[in-house]
Amino acid sequence: MRGTDARAGTAGEVFWVFLRLGLTSFGGPVAHLGYFRDALVQRRRWLTDAAYADIVALCQFLPGPASSQVGMALGLRRAGIAGMLAAWVAFTMPSAVVLVAFAFGVATWGDLDGAGWLLGLKAAAVAVVAQAVLGMAKSLTPDAPRATIAAAGMIVVLLVPSTWVQVAVIVAGGLVGLACLRAPQAEADDVLAFPLSRRTGAVCLGLFALLLAGLPVLAALTGDPTVGLVDLFYRAGSLVFGGGHVVLPLLESETVTTGLVGHDTFLAGYGAAQAVPGPLFTFAGFLGASTTVGPTGLVGAALALLAIFLPAALLVLGVLPFWDRLRRVRPARNALLGINAVVVGILAAALYDPVFTQGVTSAAALALAVAVFIAQTRWKVPAWAAVIGAGVIGQIVL
């Protein structure tokens, strides 16, 4: 790939890069995409902005935790299936460990809403996402038609906040790109290949569907609480678009309403989940460790975590072997121009709500967000250092 580091990496390299991201990526899935872009596109040049945008666009279509799926895809591309597993474990482990520990009462943080360090981290997330949106806009919306598509997508998502509306906007962006935009011919070195065969992809897609249809039947026939727990979290990971916050109502109805987890316990865990880096889907580990029926503790946490992330992994493995060939077809490339532009608009909408609305709650928080933005864009301070610094400053002044 022109201008990027296309050599094969190792699973160990992927693990340490994503462990740093897992320890410092606060702010939710949109912020995670900003951290990924800063670490892997800008700093390490593992892939181009356009290739990264294509992966993000694809994962926006798939159900499950979008940022985790992007991380899995990046790990897979860098170091194969071992790299994909390393990326998932490293990015997921920090928040999962903290939340499971919290479920056991090891970590007692009290009321997190007014914690200064948490307010500082949310302010830093505003700067990270702003940098990502501006950088992607520069490369993906360089002309009037694509800038208009991005603006239209942002307006629709802001005015009609719904996960299904986001999916519809992405589809509309693809249709507009197909009809109105003209992509240049794909260059020979513009390759987004993954070390998987299409047969492997088809098997993974089949397994995804089999588990989605078969686990509820097996749970009903056996009445086994372990199968029921796996079914609950597998369905949650399979049927939800939009990431962590969208899965919460489903998890609440499946755990609190059924008596698996108490309402106060659920709320306490949700509060803790807001304060940890990494994917919000690791909240499943807290719930699995807190269940009152069936497997609980460490066993329940492990089953819940594996079950809720397994659909994401199967979909990534199933779709990516077909993705490079599809994206190189001229009509598909035209559609991708529109999709990538509208994704920029969706990210810009998310920059406002929830990232800005939750991260800038005072003049001091705005000042801190601006300081982090300048530190990253002008002084080239690494994102992880800027985030940690923002947390320390937030504890002092917010």
Rank of each mutant, 00 (worst) to 15 (best):
L267E: 07
I388Q: 05
W88C: 10
L251S: 04
L212D: 03
G9C: 12
L305D: 08
T141A: 14
P63G: 13
F283I: 05
G242Q: 09
D143L: 02
G12A: 12
L398P: 02
G278H: 13
A82M: 09
W16A: 12
D324Q: 09
D353S: 14
A90I: 00
V299N: 06
L118K: 06
V171A: 14
G271S: 12
V227E: 05
A349F: 05
L178K: 06
L62Q: 05
G288F: 10
K380F: 03
A31S: 15
A66V: 14
S238K: 13
A304S: 15
A186L: 00
F233H: 11
A124P: 02
I81Y: 11
G206W: 14
G153E: 05
A332Q: 04
Q42N: 12
A341P: 01
V342N: 02
R182T: 15
W109H: 06
A8M: 08
L159F: 07
A219E: 11
M136Q: 10
V293E: 15
A107P: 04
A284R: 08
A151Y: 09
L40T: 08
A137K: 06
V41D: 03
F281E: 09
T163W: 09
Q60I: 09
V355C: 11
V256Q: 03
A132E: 02
A130D: 01
C204N: 12
L221Q: 14
L310D: 00
G318N: 10
A124L: 00
C59V: 10
G223L: 09
V240T: 08
P63D: 12
L76G: 12
A273K: 00
G278Y: 12
E254R: 14
V293K: 10
D189R: 13
V240S: 01
A390W: 01
G300N: 07
A341E: 06
D324K: 07
V157K: 02
V381A: 09
A127F: 03
V343P: 02
G173F: 11
A268D: 13
P279M: 09
R325P: 00
L248R: 00
R235V: 07
A365T: 04
V89Q: 03
V56L: 06
F104N: 00
T258M: 04
A53E: 03
Q376T: 00
A87W: 02
L74H: 07
L298T: 12
F241I: 01
E13K: 04
V247Y: 08
L337E: 08
A365G: 03
T257M: 09
I81L: 15
A186Q: 02
A172H: 06
